[in-house]
Design a protein around this nucleic acid. Sequence first.
DNA 1: CGAAATATGTATCAATTGTTACAAAACAGC
DNA 2: GCTGTTTTGTAACAATTGATACATATTTCG
Lengths: 224, 224
Amino acid sequence: MNYQLLTQCPIFRGITEKEAENLLNKIHFQIKSYSKDEVVVVAGEPVLNLHIIVSGSVRGEMIDFSGKTIKIEDIEAPKPLATAFLFGQENKFPVTVTANNDVKILGMPVSEFLKLLQLNTRILKNYLTSISSRAQFLSQKLHFLSFKTIKGKVAHFLLNQAGDTFHSVELKNTQQQLADLFGVTRPSLARVFGEMQKEGLIRITNKTVTLLDKKSLTELMNNV
Amino acid sequence: MNYQLLTQCPIFRGITEKEAENLLNKIHFQIKSYSKDEVVVVAGEPVLNLHIIVSGSVRGEMIDFSGKTIKIEDIEAPKPLATAFLFGQENKFPVTVTANNDVKILGMPVSEFLKLLQLNTRILKNYLTSISSRAQFLSQKLHFLSFKTIKGKVAHFLLNQAGDTFHSVELKNTQQQLADLFGVTRPSLARVFGEMQKEGLIRITNKTVTLLDKKSLTELMNNV
DNA sequence: CGAAATATGTATCAATTGTTACAAAACAGC
DNA sequence: GCTGTTTTGTAACAATTGATACATATTTCG
């Protein structure tokens, strides 16, 4: 068992290797191996164990009604799986998880994990921080989606990136990536960039966006 | 101190009055009183305490750039406040909280609350369930918003309400309320209802919606 | 440097939704 | 049952965005 890697897992952050070893000696768990493309869990299955990927990587996929699989995200070692679904009213896996390559996964029953949380304050704090951050992330994403127009989204994005002090933003993504982030098509985003430039709100030179009129930009955001 | 009321708080669910009293004797906390329209916390303030409303009710409000306040939600006794922001990377209040009437609020430092979580498995479970459920709620809401067209949203909503077994849904909200839920205007929703009826997907009689073609409805959902 | 690949700007047209307005229907209270 | 209020159905038009296509920049890499 590689305790060194485990301490890099968000849940064990700040725990020394020795501590981790001591703690895990008091707790029941098992390590399972999966080979490439083997299914780890099926969507809808109840979440009875905390899963932590010890080595390799997996992908989460949803299967829609027509049978098409849609990749949701990749998760790599040493990250935990579906931490937000260990507890809660509907503790079923939201996605089907499949091994990307040869994978080792630590499985720990919920009851054992609860013991662990009560044994060690640091781990408790880590876990609480982890699911709270997730809730905050989702909340922010929801807020972001509440902007109806593309201009509103762009304004919000740019103002967020720039913060209070700066007046220009260095884009680190292509327009296509931004468009995906905003949930719009690439030409639509380009059009909006063009319009905002014509209106004197921003100036785009290569990958740098200069915010010329922060006031008007904030007003754009409020037009829900 | 009314321990009976406290046991009705989600965090203390399943705890007897005596247990609650015993536990709280080991923990530091204070009860503060606020009068009507008094500000309890200001948005942006760090969340250092767990707040539980012991009596009365409060409202959460956001202040937008133009200075307008927008009511987000009402919270009544004996519910906790901003549980998802006690931990996490950005533990600041997302909203300004104001008393709706005379209010008593229990405040418990995070460090004391952590102790409480480690003292009692039931409370730990309750709290984990609470924030996990919130994350799940947000996740579902996000999924709901991912349907681009109004038809998709309506199809999802109706199929969800009906479940696997039923073929008709009793609407308990007005079109206006549904439209707000979907984030669209009322006439647009009415138009979509009309179109779906013309297409033979549903039949609307008063407040009852009969699903005539579940298959086509599920297909509508997949047109993201 | 030069060619191929990738990214961006732009145009046209279709589809969807919002806006506004008004009539018909359903409902509530007397 | 009648009247005023709320809810629902519908229409015409505007605004926004998506789809598609193609030209032009820009980057990458040999």
